[in-house]
């Protein structure tokens, strides 16, 4: 990724406050984002909320990189009404790790984390009601993981329900 260094007072303050937790501070097409260690996830977001008025969790989502030992990347897109700016916080961790839930900080995280759990199987520690939200309770697996292929899902459905080899 052809990124630039993210340089502004907030970036410097972030690095100064969390020297061992902030791994990278970059910017792409003018949009800043920082990668932090997964154990500092809640602390950094709480600091941004309380000290820098990033009071709107615009979105929370994940990306799957199955080739990497830290396969999941969790992304929080924050917005500050007073500063009128967006900021992305990211963290990476292996399948076995459970990041702390942001629901106590941002009530909006409740449904967003449920969706991430539903789609990727990431379980959030301390979430008040972590269960599937869009898919039925008995759905097997997590569809947005890269190993789930649309074609294979389609084929297994038509084989089980219609008794034909392929629906394609």
């Amino acid at each position: 990724m052809a990124t630039e260094a993210w340089q502004d007072p907030l970036s410097a303050a972030l690095a100064a406050t969390f020297p061992s937790s902030v791994l990278t501070r970059e910017s792409f097409r003018g949009q800043p984002f920082a990668l932090i260690t997964p154990t500092a996830w809640c602390d950094v977001l709480s600091w941004l909320l309380l000290n820098h008025a990033f009071d709107y969790l615009a979105d929370l989502t994940a990306v799957d990189f199955p080739q990497s030992p830290d396969r999941f990347e969790l992304i929080a897109i924050l917005y500050s009404f007073s500063a009128n700016r967006y900021l992305r916080l990211k963290t990476r961790f292996p399948e076995s790790f459970s990041p702390a839930s942001l629901t106590p900080l941002f009530p909006a995280a409740n449904w967003l984390e449920r969706e991430v759990y539903d789609m990727f199987g990431i379980s959030f520690a301390g979430h008040p009601n972590l269960k599937r939200i869009l898919l039925p309770e008995d759905w097997q697996g997590f569809p947005l993981r890269k190993e789930k292929s649309i074609l294979a899902m389609d084929q297994s459905w038509v084989q089980n329900h219609l008794g034909i080899k392929s629906g394609q």
Partner: peptide, 29 residues
């Protein structure tokens, strides 16, 4: 390769797209 978040004011509120490209023909996410 790169990633962006872009949002607009849709009739119902903030509609955003977060796209991660790995440099291929299809978005990675």
């Amino acid at each position: 390769p790169g990633e962006i978040y872009s949002s607009i004011e849709a009739p119902k509120g903030e509609l955003g797209y977060y796209i991660v490209s790995d440099g291929s023909l299809q978005p990675w996410r």
